[in-house]
């Protein structure tokens, strides 16, 4: 299995654990990821938020590069996935827009590439492929699986149900973990306001942490670097501002599956988290 891989701009910075663990996990599961040569920013929230054309064009440039590779495309970052997938849908549905965008990018793309989230790629594997490699089942771990917005909305590109998605829950249950039933799976963490209005974001994020803690989770699993950054990096500040004492490590689902199939914590970048991950590693044994 081979996919064109879009790492996204925070692959070596704030979202490095996701890129590292995605590559390691895919390698272990015989999924070949080919980094798109010459990829550029997908436009992210600032792109489509300020100009429809800019948002589509920045993503479309990358889709054109993928089309040249003759592969289908995947992105680990949920934001990049959503942008690439939305641009793909819009261009396929609107030939006039497509022409305009092709003039802007100076490239020719008329659809044809399939864009999938890395969550879908892993979920579509034969479960045996993961279970047969299982060496360290996550049996003692109770996980609050957090999907955020970008993977489940809007409908045209949703990976799973927007109200009660289960795809990552099922993956983590397959490697032995228990997942908790909780109400904030797809509540927004406010990532796009993180820099400009962090007081707003602290409120949103603290509610998500409170909900996960109330549900009895040992940790949170996610598939989006923006969510991860907000929940992990900001946890300390939330504790300061709201007088709480959360110590909930936040993992990418790829890190946890990787751990279960015997990849070492170092390979999965467990040491770059803000919230100490050793407690969870002990639970897993």
């Amino acid at each position: 299995m081979r996919y064109a891989y879009f790492p996204g701009c925070c692959d070596h910075t704030s979202g490095r654990e996701y890129d590292i663990s995605t590559r390691a996990l895919c390698h272990a599961l015989d999924v070949e990821l080919v980094e798109i040569p010459g990829w550029s920013c997908c436009g992210s929230t600032p792109g489509h938020s300020t100009s429809h054309l800019l948002g589509i064009a920045l993503a479309a440039r990358n889709l054109a590069l993928v089309a040249e590779m003759g592969l289908d495309c995947t992105a680990s970052c949920a934001a990049c996935y959503q942008r690439l997938a939305m641009a793909n849908v819009e261009m396929q549905n609107d030939p006039r827009l497509c022409e305009k965008i092709n003039w802007i990018t100076g490239k020719t793309y008329h659809g044809g590439v399939k864009v999938k989230s890395i969550v879908e790629i892993i979920a579509e594997l034969n479960p045996e492929q993961i279970i047969s490699r299982l060496v360290k089942p996550l049996e003692n771990l109770k996980i609050a699986v957090y999907y955020g917005c970008l993977m489940v909305r809007p409908k045209a590109v949703q990976v799973d149900d927007p109200e009660n998605p289960l795809v990552m829950d099922h993956l983590l249950e397959a490697v032995g973990a228990k997942t908790v039933d909780w109400g904030s799976k797809t509540e927004c963490c406010g990532a796009s306001l993180a820099i400009s209005n962090d007081d707003v974001v602290l409120k949103l994020t603290s509610k998500i942490l409170a909900d996960a803690a109330r549900a009895g989770a040992d940790c949170i699993a996610t598939g989006c670097p923006l969510c991860h950054f907000n929940l992990d990096m900001r946890q300390k500040k939330i504790n300061q501002v709201f007088g709480t004492d959360y110590q909930l490590p936040v993992f990418y689902f790829t890190q946890l599956i990787g751990l279960a199939i015997g990849l070492t914590p170092d390979n999965l970048s467990f040491n770059t988290h803000f919230i100490d991950t050793s407690k969870v590693l002990e639970l897993v044994g």
Binding site: T45, H48, S49, C149, V152, R153, P154, K155, P162, E163, T186, E187, C188, G190, A191, S192, L193, N197, V200
Partner: peptide
């Protein structure tokens, strides 16, 4: 400008 683009409304 405060709209975070989460699309909860849309869904």
């Amino acid at each position: 400008w405060l709209c975070a683009g989460c699309s909860t409304c849309t869904s």
